[in-house]
Amino acid sequence: MTPHPLLEVRDLAVEFPTAEGTVRAVKGIDFTVERGRTLGIVGESGSGKSVTSLAVMGLHRGATVTGSAKLDGTELIGTPDDRLRALRGRKMAMVFQDALTALHPYFTVGDQIAEAYRQHFGGTRKAALARAVDVLGDVGIPEPARRAREHPHQFSGGMRQRAMIALALSCDPDLIIADEPTTALDVTVQAQVLELLMRLQQERGLGIVMITHDLGVIARVADEVLVMYGGSAVEQAPAEKLFTAPRHPYTRGLLDSLPRLDDEDGAELRAIPGSPPSLLAPPAGCAFHPRCPAYAATSDGRCTGDRPPLRTVADGHRSACVLDEVTA
């Protein structure tokens, strides 16, 4: 084993200027991804989860990114783009949400994969296309040689997402960042794609960052979970602990809102009241306090002071609720 973790992110912050003011999309988050492990990042739209992944890849254009993100010990933040390019696709690859728009409509699937391979390994077009056919086969696409000559719109949703994964795998990366990879798919296909990712992870020792709003996906694949809210991490824990003993009121709200098989017939779905915070004018203190049931019960000013940092509340379990003693 090398001494470095595969991906080590420290105090990562992303801001971007807009006409109405600076948006602080990510406000200093830390996480680590080890080889062969999966970190799930969960949060609702606007929580900063996708922006985090784009910042790591160096793909968030027009944004100011500060802090540190080290891939196998190599700093990514602030590194010139031409040096990042050698790592992008090669050492870290991304699987995007909607493969229909994320794959280029004009080029065949085989060409798109071959292009990535040739960019990093050179060689002939023919050899790269052969490699493309191989990875398409690896991700379970039947008749890969024929499908490689087809365009993305000729694929079904599930097959297209497999092709997207094949593209990410083509250069044998160490880290895969998957941003809502199954959101556009129906449930059975979703399960197949997640199984595929887990199988590939075991075969190749991939580190995976799984970004999703879907706790079901997290429960299935994640070893560690980072819960984001309003651009900050509010809870971080091993997946098991997060599901059995959530500490932050937001996480609890999320878990409570999942419908369960043992719900009584006709029981209403439970939702977290209110709506996600504005990134332009976030609430003071804990960004979640306006929607927090615990805050409503104990409004003594602790929630509206400084933004609460993550604190260790149990072994390997961190939560950002100042009321933790109260609500535990």
Binding site: R85, R88, A93, F96, Q119, L167
Partner: peptide
């Protein structure tokens, strides 16, 4: 601003190719 242009960047292609091949054609 299309997602497929972002994918081209994510593949590690040089900007010249991202613009010339993946952006300008469509």
């Amino acid at each position: 601003a299309e997602p497929y242009v972002r994918t081209a960047r994510a593949k590690g292609l040089p900007e010249r190719r991202v613009v010339g091949k993946h952006g300008l054609r469509p």
